[in-house]
Computed example of a mutant assay.
Amino acid sequence: MASREIYANGFDEDVQTDNQTNGCPECGGRVATNTVETVCEACGLVLEEHAIDHSGEPVYEEETERTGAPLTTSRHDRGLSTTIGRKRDGKGNALSAKKRRQLGRLRREQKRGRFRSKQERNLSHGLGEVQRVAIVLDVDDTLQEQACQLFRSAHSEGLLPGRSIEAVAAASVYAACRCNGRSLPLADVVEAARVGENRVTNAYATLNKELGLPAQPVQPHAYLPRLASDLDVPDSVRRQARMFAERAEAESLARGASPPGFAAACLYHVAQETEYRLTQAAVADVAGVTTTTIRTHRETLRSELQ
């Protein structure tokens, strides 16, 4: 029976002897390779170092880089600030009362040091107002990001002094919709904003002039889907109204007219021709115009297109 312990003459598993080479090129000694470098045991010459670690985590094709959450224009710091939780930790466990009080103090100090200047505070308030107006008007995320970028451009160009932040925020949402050809009535924007119509109109005119917005006039046919949906008219009436609107646009009959008012007049005209029950008051109320406007545009359609 052996008196010595088992594996008394052990070896380091991380060190491997390089038997495939002829040894050290300097002294001919034995070369050993560990997880970091390849070195001669006799003279200490380092042959290779910083070996490639093949035990890393897998990289998938969809994952191109690891830089955290994407940047966003809807926050003044582009989303780089840290958000401190309130009731649960990263694993979903409830926090103790002591930890909640500590996080409350940290959250208060973070809020105090969040803005470096009054300009950043105004930018944060304006971007929040842009998101509020966009949510009220049911604007999609893409247009919301463009509206936030327009507000950033107005802030960097010095267009905010002397104007209401709420007015510029509402005008940014309206401008983003106009640049993308979405039919968004100005009356709806004013209703969602916290300022009057004159301020929103002046802010939009300033953005359009100073920033050179590629805003195109919205044609009357773009308002027909929303008006038809609000009035709950049949699809046949809506299709015929779109035909009338496109013919009127081709012959420049809608030039200078209110687009939603002209679209409402097309709907009312087709409804009267097809004997579908639709009153002038209901159409004017949905379009945000007067009944006189509906009658005037309807007479234009009857005299020019029939």
Rank of each mutant, 00 (worst) to 15 (best):
V237M: 07
A282M: 11
D14Y: 06
R226V: 05
A167C: 05
N202G: 07
R88M: 13
D77K: 06
P185G: 13
S81Y: 08
H155Y: 13
N180R: 14
P259H: 08
C177W: 07
L137Y: 08
F151S: 14
G261P: 00
V130W: 04
E62G: 12
H269S: 11
R101K: 11
Y268L: 14
V195S: 05
H76I: 02
I84W: 09
G79K: 07
G28R: 09
V218Y: 08
E61P: 06
P217K: 05
T279N: 05
A254C: 08
Q280Y: 02
E275S: 10
L127P: 02
E299F: 11
G126F: 12
D77V: 05
A169L: 09
C148Q: 06
Y276Q: 11
S172T: 02
G181Y: 09
A94C: 10
F262M: 02
P161D: 08
I135N: 07
A32F: 06
L106G: 03
G10Y: 10
T38R: 15
F262N: 02
S183M: 03
S303T: 06
V189Y: 10
P161G: 03
T72D: 03
T72N: 03
Q149K: 14
Y204S: 02
Q219T: 13
Q272P: 00
R226C: 02
Q102A: 15
R66G: 04
G158H: 01
G256N: 07
A265E: 04
F244G: 00
A175W: 07
L207W: 09
R295C: 04
V59N: 03
S252L: 08
P58K: 01
G23L: 06
T293S: 05
V189R: 03
R247A: 15
R86W: 07
A193V: 00
A205Q: 15
A228Q: 01
L80F: 09
Q131D: 12
L143T: 03
V31S: 01
T293R: 01
Q146V: 14
H269K: 07
R100M: 14
T21D: 05
T290D: 03
N180K: 12
F262L: 04
L71V: 05
A175P: 04
V270W: 01
Y174V: 01
N93T: 06
A176R: 01
A167T: 03
L160A: 08
K209Y: 04
A2F: 07
A265P: 02
N9Q: 12
Y223C: 00
L160D: 04
Q216T: 08
D141A: 15
R101H: 10
E109P: 01
V39K: 13
T38N: 05
G126T: 08
F151H: 13
H76Y: 14
S96K: 03
A175Y: 02
A97R: 15
G85S: 09
T274P: 02
